Amino acid sequence: MKLHGRNKLQALYGLDTETDKWLCSWTSELIYANWKQSKDVLRQFPQAKNVANEVFQFRVGTQSVWIEVAMMFPLAIAIVTDLRRIN
Rank of each mutant, 00 (worst) to 15 (best):
W66R: 06
Y13H: 14
A52R: 12
W22T: 09
S64L: 03
Q10V: 07
R6Y: 09
V55W: 03
Q47K: 12
V65R: 04
E18M: 11
E18C: 09
V69L: 04
A11R: 14
L83G: 11
T62E: 10
W66Y: 05
N50V: 02
E54M: 07
E29F: 02
K36C: 04
L75C: 06
V69K: 03
D16Q: 12
S28K: 08
A70T: 11
A52K: 13
K8G: 09
K39E: 11
N53E: 10
V65I: 02
Q57E: 13
A78F: 02
L83T: 09
R43P: 01
Q47C: 07
E29S: 09
E18Q: 15
Y32L: 02
F45T: 04
M71L: 05
E68P: 00
R43W: 00
I86T: 12
W66S: 06
Q63C: 02
V65E: 00
V69F: 01
E18Y: 08
V41Y: 00
P74E: 06
M72G: 09
M72T: 08
N50A: 15
I77W: 07
I67K: 01
I77V: 15
K21V: 06
L9T: 10
A78C: 08
H4E: 12
S28M: 03
A33S: 15
W66H: 05
